[in-house]
Amino acid sequence: MENGTDYRVRGRVLFVRMPEEVDHHSSLEMKRQILRLREQNPISELVFDFSDTGFMDSAGIGMLLGRYREMAAAGGRVYVRRVSPRVSRILEMSGIYRIIGDWDKRNQEGDR
């Protein structure tokens, strides 16, 4: 929509470049798009790229948890990457790092 979110499918990985502000409003659209792309493509890994994101509230956490549940139910996984200190603080407060890992760290460690 108007918020500059970008979606790319590479193989079985869906990369979502998040908008500048992740809130209830922008999360609604992301949820719809991800659902649509998963219907059209065999996605086993979902990667949220926070390169452009400076703001996120608990609605963003809710959206991540919702996607995690869907992906986990289908045997898939969810990752985040390039989180700013602010977004990282929100992610830490939510405890979501216990179930969602960092994409770049995973690839460095090479546990494919």
Partner: peptide, 13 residues
Amino acid sequence: RERSGMGFSFMEA
């Protein structure tokens, strides 16, 4: 409805 249940916790934090 995909609510995290963390809204008030964030306000208090």
